[in-house]
């Protein structure tokens, strides 16, 4: 299996990345070189995909339980977001409009 340059450009759009013409050409070559090594997985015998053995899984997973909806100590992430975000106004993240979306259409 190999990736063509057009396909690499499509993957870049999905990944929200942008590359110049030379960059995408080189990246396509590198991806194909890596994928050649990944081809070794084709020789794998059949079997189910299970991530961890029972010994390796945390006890909570083995019991089928998950973390409670609230930790005892409240998370601080609801505070101070305005200090770490690039743009913040009136309690919201500020972002540019979607392509082709006019301000009055978005109201």
């Amino acid at each position: 299996m190999s990736v063509g340059q057009k396909q690499a450009e499509r993957i870049a759009i999905l990944a929200r990345l942008h590359f110049g013409a030379e960059e995408i050409e080189r990246l396509t070559e590198e991806l194909n070189h890596i994928l050649q090594h990944v081809e070794a997985l084709r020789n794998l015998e059949d079997g189910p995909a299970v991530v961890h053995s029972e010994e390796g899984a945390p006890q909570a997973w083995q019991r089928g339980s998950t973390r409670g909806s609230e930790a005892e100590v409240p998370d601080t992430l609801d505070q101070g977001l305005n200090k770490v975000s690039p743009d913040w106004a009136e309690g919201f993240f500020v972002v540019p409009p979607l392509p082709g979306l006019h301000k009055d259409e978005g109201a």
């Binding site: 929200r16 942008h18 991806l31 540019p96 409009p97």
Partner: peptide, 26 residues
């Protein structure tokens, strides 16, 4: 616009090895 901001931020903010792995994973 929003999509260009995503792409611009990620393309200038992330290094080549990170972008290579994001591409491979995507």
């Amino acid at each position: 616009d929003l999509i260009s901001m995503y792409q611009g931020t990620r393309s200038t903010g992330l290094g080549i090895e990170v972008k290579r792995r994001i591409m491979l994973g995507t």
